[in-house]
Design a protein around this nucleic acid. Structure first.
Lengths: 342, 342
DNA sequence: GAAGGAGATGGTAGCGCTACCAAGAAACTG
DNA sequence: CAGTTTCTTGGTAGCGCTACCATCTCCTTC
């Protein structure tokens, strides 16, 4: 019908339709929608009425092209099924649900190369911000982050030298605190059981080692690790291995709660008394740890809060009010429970 | 330097730069990249060389605007932390990782209204396909799906009347199979324990009820449910409630594995023998069920496979080869374990 | 060998929006 | 009250790409 309208587009109203209807210029409609403060009360109302009548919704693709900036947060995590990252992601989602920002989530599978690839995919889209897990990017990935031209928040860890901003906690200190707690509780031959052994697990191991060495208790045979992805069944297996290696084992600090739960089940099956014969400490404090029988000591980590804080920092940076603190340490908390109450 | 180049854009090479360098028209570059078969071998090589030299990457936003179609899959799930959906999402990601498609994941929080809102956000972006969990959309959400102008795959369930395509399994049959198994194992006063009670849980309950009624065993007091989100601690609580209501309880079919695990832990704590005094059956068969002590009977659901299949169907529809089957039932599998071996 | 068809390439004209600049009106300055 | 600043509004010119149509070759076909 009308001259140019809706040839290729799906016939949805455009900003020009709204402008015509409201009797203003297209640019004024654009402004009324994005910076209402810069348009007079009168026109704003008129424009809003036209928008409502037509059911106008701005085209995000056209917006992104014209402004060279998409209203998208790129989020990169190593795993989607690992509850730990799921919680971080949930924090991110909850913080962004009232904003215009959409979320594009990438799964790196704990691979630096895959992380690079995803950054190469995300970059050309010109996201408003990037949130990535960890601080151990490959040099290439780090360069991609530095040149992304948007705020970048690394999450889950602390460290001295973030690409841009950083929020998390110290896995090394967490590992140390867990181990020291077990030593204080009277355990001596304390093993470390770890699966996957990504950089964060490595740091927990380093914390364990520091604590054990300080107490003069370290023995490499106490350490049992595997690159295999973590799971409850694997926890059982690794504990059997650990026990076979060191039959006098008195306790284990586990890489994470899945492994700890596997250890607990294996103890039940082998009729090993917990905490008397074997003490168990987990990491992350999933909610099942307090329900287990016996309940399992763990390090509570602020996963959801990390997600929220990361978004808050990114949002601040986007609005050019960079947060005073570029590095935020949210800490962790030792939850003492029955599994280490000797 | 050059006339028009990189005023607003970040100075990245554009398709025109590539065309100039390769000595061809811009449109030919576009074609060489998207439909290599339609460009002669010679030019294709020339163009590829120019692309490599310049490090050209197409701008996805410009592409989306010009073609009125974004290379994005919209995915809507009710929860990000629930392992069940995490597995579906993982299947989707793994199937899409080698494709040009990006993924935009929305979290509906089990809310129909939130689902509508997200569809309203996703729609204007003109995604290549939409994957949504469940078949219980509000009328508005359903209309949004029907008018999205792209393939739509509903997942997790079966049913007669999908918006477009559907892949999943029958929760009702799953609930029935679980209950029948317990009846066959010799349990009589079998309770149902359910949290959240979303539509899928309701159908599992319906399956339980059918089986119990058929066997002449149904009693409304055996059913314990709550709208509260599911968790292991909640499983313990609900089991205590159920037992208080019906002290002669012989077994429970749980809504899901978290609840089942909570029940198991409560049995341990209360020194109730499993499976002798109480039998337990879960739903979904998370990997910890086989490791638990005693191991827990559960209904294995094809979550990862559902994600993969959904993508396969969507991809087929995108390339205009709609799959022969619009509705795919992937079934489930009863895993008999110690917790019901009376 | 003329007519018709298939394949390869390019030009033009947008997709729907916003950056940039300009211009007029209103408010302020000394 | 001329000169300057601030506020409001609009026009123009793209952002980087692809749909559509036109053109030109090179085969077929009878």
């Amino acid at each position: 019908m009308s001259k140019t309208r809706s040839r290729r587009g799906g016939g949805r109203p455009t900003i020009a339709d709204v402008a015509r209807r409201a009797g203003v210029g297209a640019i004024t409609v654009s402004r009324a929608l994005r910076e209402p403060g810069r348009v007079s009360e009168d026109l704003r109302r008129q424009i809003q009425a036209a928008v409502d009548e037509l059911g106008y919704v701005p085209d995000p693709n056209a917006r992104a092209l014209a402004s060279a900036r998409a209203e998208v947060f790129g989020v990169l995590v190593p795993s989607l099924t690992n509850n730990v990252f799921a919680e971080v992601v949930r924090g991110i989602y909850d913080s962004l649900s009232d904003s215009p920002f959409r979320i594009q989530l990438g799964n790196t599978h704990y691979s630096g190369l895959e992380e690079e690839r995803l950054l190469q995919v995300f970059g050309p889209q010109r996201p408003a911000a990037l949130i990535v897990a960890g601080i151990d990017q490959t040099p290439t990935a780090r360069r991609l982050l530095e040149t992304a031209g948007c705020p970048v928040v690394q999450v889950m860890e602390t460290g001295p030298d973030p690409v841009d901003m950083l929020v998390g906690f110290s896995h090394l200190e967490g590992g140390r605190a867990a181990t020291e707690h077990m030593i204080e509780a009277g355990y001596r031959r304390i093993g470390f059981i770890g699966a996957r052994m990504d950089p964060r697990s490595q740091r927990r191991l380093a914390g364990y080692r520091t604590a054990m060495e300080t107490a003069g208790l370290f023995d490499p045979r106490l350490v049992t690790t595997t690159p295999v992805p973590s799971s409850v069944p694997l926890g059982r297996e690794l504990f059997r291995d650990a026990l076979a290696k060191v039959p006098t084992l008195e306790g284990v600090f586990c890489n994470n709660d899945d492994i700890a739960l596997g250890v607990l089940f294996e103890c039940h099956r082998a009729a090993i008394a917990v905490p008397k014969t074997i003490g168990i400490t987990g990491f992350n404090d999933l909610d099942m740890m307090q329900s287990a029988f016996p309940s399992i000591t763990s390090i509570r980590t602020p996963r959801y809060e990390i997600g929220r804080r990361a978004v808050a920092m990114a949002l601040a940076a986007i609005s050019r009010k960079r947060p005073e603190q570029r590095i935020v340490d949210l800490g962790f908390e030792l939850r003492r429970r029955e599994s280490t109450a000797r």
